[in-house]
Design a protein around this nucleic acid. Structure first.
Length: 463
RNA sequence: UCCCCGGUAGCUCAGUCGGUAGAGCAGGCGGCUGUUAACCGCCUUGUCGAUGGUUCGAGUCCGUCCCGGGGAGCCA
C-alpha cells in the first residue's frame, strides 16, 4: 500500500531539534541489518551525506522481499525519535516500508570500498556513492557561489555561443559541427565546400567564450560567462577533459593588477563558501580523500596570494639547485615540474606568475612596454597546477594587428573583434577558471574524470 | 601522440622457477545480536583482456591489438 504522507528530506529530518510523528522519508538503501527482533536500514536520499537509520520490526512485509537489499529504493513512514544507541542522534521508527524499486545482489555498487576507476565504469550509478554525492553537492554549491559572487559585484552574466566559427583563437583543437554527409560532402576543387554547410561556413564547438565576452565587457562594463567549453585535444591526463565548464570574467577599465585581484577574491570567496556551506561534505573529503584538506582550505581563505613575474620565476628556478628534467631558460615554457616546484615548494600556496614572454602567449594579450613580454597571468596552485589563466587584453588596434601578423592569425575571421578596438576601445582584462580544476582543488580529488558527472575524454563519451 | 605500469571470481587482490586457480569482501543457507561497512559457521562463483606464437605443458615467456591508470606534450 503506497504511503500517503508527504516526503521529508533526510537533511531536514536530521536537523530537527524535536521528535516528529507521521513522517515519511524516501531514498536508497545503503545497508540492511536484519535481526530476529529488530532490523536496521541505512537510508540515503542524496540531500546530505548522512544516512537516516530506520528501525523496523522484522515482521514488516517489505523486509521479507528479496529485492530489499543494498541499492533498493524505499519509502518509509513512521516516527522520528531520538536514537537510544550511539552513532546517530535521530532514527526513524518505521510503521510501514514500501519497496519502490528493488535491487538484488547483482547491484554493482556494493557496500564496500570501490576504486575510483571502477566507479567511473559505472558512472550511471556512482552518484549514489558517498564520494560522488558529496562532490555533486559541492559542485552545485560552487556554481551557485560563482553567480552570487559576480552578482554581488555588479557583473552581468552573458551567454556566449556554444557553436562558433572563430577557430583562430588558438586555444585548442575544435570539434567540428556540421550537417554535411561525412560520406559524401559537397566538394569544390577536391576540398570540402563549407559554404554548403548549415551555417555556410566552417563551424565548431567553442573553445572559449572570451572573445565574445570582451565585446560584451566593452558595452556592459563587467561581465562573466559560465558555460561548457570543448577541446578536441588528444590529451590523456588527470587534468584534461574534452568537455569542461569554464568561468570567464571580463572587466572594462581594468589592468593586470585588477585582474589578479579579482581572481584572488573569487578563489577566496569560493573556498570560504565551501567551508561555510558544505561542511559535512568537506569533512568527508578531509577524512577519505585528502587528509588535511580543511586546514589547507582554511589557510587559503586567509592567506595572501604570492605574485612573481615570469622573469623572477625563471631566476628562482635557476637558483634552486634542483635538477629538473627539463632545463630552465628565459623564453621557454614553464614545465609542469617547474610550476609544481614554484607553487608547492617556493611559495607553498597559490602563486600568480605574470608577464610571460610574448612569444609564448596568445595574440590578444597586451604587449608590455618592454615589447618582449605580455600582461598575462597564470594562477598556479599546489597539486592541480594552472587553475586560472588570464591577461590584460591588447586594446590598441595597431599593436593588436601587429601581434596577429606575428602570430599568423588571419584578420578576416576576426574583423568583428578588431572593430571593438576600432571604435571605443579601452583597457580591459579578464581570465578563465576551469571549474573542474577548481573542484579538484577544493575537494582534493585527483582526477578530473571524478569531478564531473559524466566525463568526456579521448575515446570515451559513455553515458 | 609519446614513455611507464596494469588487466586473474560481482568487487579488492595474491598466484614462487612455466607444472593445470586462491584469499578477503559481496552473495546463499544457518546461528546470534539495539545494530553501526555488525559478528560466527558452512557453501556457491573463473572465456586468467583479445589474438597469434614458443613449449610436452602458458595466468606466468614473446609478438600484435583492445581497455584502464600514471607521467609528458597541449591547456583550464
Amino acid at each position: 500500500m503506497p504511503i500517503a504522507i508527504p516526503r521529508s528530506r533526510i537533511r531536514d529530518l536530521l536537523a530537527r531539534s524535536e521528535p516528529l510523528a507521521g513522517v515519511c522519508a524516501k531514498g536508497w538503501v545503503r545497508t540492511v541489518r536484519r535481526g530476529k527482533e529488530v532490523a536496521f536500514l541505512e537510508l540515503n536520499d542524496g540531500s546530505c551525506l548522512a544516512s537516516l537509520q530506520v528501525v523496523a520490526e522484522p515482521s514488516l512485509a517489505a523486509l521479507a522481499d528479496p529485492g530489499l537489499g543494498t541499492g533498493a529504493c524505499v519509502g518509509v513512514s513512521g516516527e522520528l525519535v531520538p536514537s537510544p544507541a550511539a552513532g546517530q542522534r535521530w532514527e526513524l521508527r518505521a510503521s510501514a516500508i514500501e519497496l519502490l524499486g528493488g535491487a538484488d545482489e547483482t547491484y554493482p555498487l556494493q557496500k564496500k570500498r570501490h576504486t575510483l576507476e571502477y566507479l567511473r565504469s559505472i558512472a550511471h550509478l556512482r552518484p549514489r556513492a558517498n564520494t560522488f554525492g558529496a562532490l555533486f553537492r559541492l559542485r552545485s554549491a560552487l556554481a551557485f557561489a560563482t553567480h552570487r559572487f559576480y552578482r554581488e559585484r555588479g557583473f552581468v552574466y552573458v551567454h556566449t555561443p556554444i557553436i562558433t566559427a572563430s577557430d583562430c583563437e588558438g586555444a585548442g583543437e575544435l570539434f567540428r559541427v556540421t550537417t554535411l554527409d561525412p560520406q559524401q560532402p559537397p566538394l569544390e576543387k577536391g576540398k570540402v565546400d563549407w559554404r554548403e554547410d548549415f551555417f555556410a561556413e566552417k563551424t565548431g564547438l567553442t573553445v572559449s567564450g572570451q572573445l565574445e565576452g570582451e565585446l560584451c565587457a566593452l558595452a556592459l562594463g563587467d561581465i562573466y560567462t559560465f558555460g561548457p567549453t570543448f577541446r578536441a585535444e588528444n590529451s590523456n591526463t588527470s587534468r584534461h577533459a574534452a568537455e569542461f565548464w569554464m568561468i570567464e570574467p571580463e572587466m572594462a577599465f581594468a589592468d593586470l593588477q585588477d585582474d589578479c585581484r579579482l581572481a584572488e577574491d573569487f578563489l577566496r570567496y569560493l573556498v570560504t563558501f565551501a567551508l561555510d556551506e558544505c561542511g559535512d561534505d568537506l569533512v568527508f573529503f578531509n577524512e577519505r580523500v585528502e587528509p588535511g584538506l580543511i586546514a589547507r582550505l582554511e589557510a587559503l581563505a586567509k592567506a595572501e596570494f604570492s605574485t612573481m613575474t615570469y622573469s623572477e620565476a625563471v631566476t628562482r628556478l635557476e637558483q634552486s639547485g634542483k635538477a629538473f628534467q627539463f632545463p630552465v631558460a628565459w623564453g621557454g615554457d614553464l614545465q609542469s615540474e617547474h610550476e609544481r616546484y614554484l607553487t608547492e615548494e617556493v611559495v607553498k600556496g597559490p602563486l600568480f606568475v605574470t608577464d610571460y614572454p610574448a612569444d609564448l602567449k596568445a595574440f590578444y594579450m597586451r604587449l608590455n612596454d618592454d615589447r618582449k613580454t605580455v600582461a598575462a597571468m597564470d594562477l598556479l596552485v599546489p597539486r592541480v597546477g594552472e587553475i586560472i589563466g588570464g591577461s590584460q587584453r591588447e586594446e590598441r588596434l595597431d599593436v593588436l594587428r601587429e601581434r596577429m601578423a606575428v602570430k599568423g592569425v588571419a584578420e578576416e575571421g576576426l574583423w568583428w573583434y578588431l572593430d571593438s578596438r576600432r571604435w571605443g576601445s579601452c583597457p580591459h582584462a579578464g581570465f578563465g577558471l576551469g571549474f573542474e580544476r577548481l573542484l579538484m582543488y577544493i575537494s582534493g580529488m585527483e582526477n578530473i574524470r571524478d569531478v564531473i558527472p559524466f566525463p568526456r575524454t579521448p575515446g570515451s563519451a559513455k553515458f
